[in-house]
Computed example of a mutant assay.
Amino acid sequence: MYDNSVMYYVYILSCADDTYYTGCTTNLTVRLQKHNLGQASKYTRSRLPVTLVYYEVLPDKSSALRREIAIKKLSRREKIMLIDHG
Rank of each mutant, 00 (worst) to 15 (best):
S41R: 00
N36A: 03
I80P: 00
V6D: 01
Y20H: 08
R77P: 00
V10N: 05
I80V: 04
D60W: 06
D17T: 09
V53E: 14
L74W: 05
A64M: 08
Y43K: 05
R31N: 06
I69N: 13
T51D: 07
Y2I: 13
G23M: 04
G38R: 08
S63Y: 09
K34L: 15
L13Y: 10
M81D: 03
Q39R: 13
G23T: 07
I83M: 11
Y9P: 10
K34Q: 15
R77L: 08
Y8Q: 07
Y9E: 03
I80R: 07
Y54F: 15
L28D: 14
S14E: 15
K73T: 02
K72S: 04
V10T: 12
K42S: 01
E68M: 10
K79T: 07
Y11I: 10
T29F: 08
V10L: 00
R66N: 13
S46Y: 10
I71A: 03
K72P: 05
R76W: 04
V57Y: 04
R45I: 01
D60R: 03
T29W: 05
C15R: 03
D60T: 09
N36H: 12
Y8F: 15
L58Q: 00
L58I: 09
T22Q: 05
L13S: 02
H35D: 07
Q39D: 08
S14M: 11
V53Y: 07
E68H: 01
H85F: 09
Q33L: 08
Y11F: 14
G38E: 07
L52Q: 13
V30P: 00
I12R: 04
R31T: 15
K42I: 07
D84Q: 15
S63V: 10
L58W: 06
Y55N: 13
L37Q: 14
Q33I: 11
Y8S: 07
T29D: 13
R76H: 01
M81W: 12
L65N: 12
M81V: 01
A64K: 09
R31D: 08
M1G: 09
H85T: 12
N36R: 05
H35G: 08
L52A: 10
S5Q: 12
I69R: 14
E78I: 00
L37N: 15
T25P: 12
A70E: 14
I83G: 01
R66L: 15
I12Q: 02
Y9N: 11
Q39F: 10
M81N: 13
E56P: 06
R76D: 09
Y9H: 12
V53H: 03
E68T: 01
P49Y: 02
Q33W: 02
Y20S: 08
S75I: 06
Y43P: 00
V57P: 02
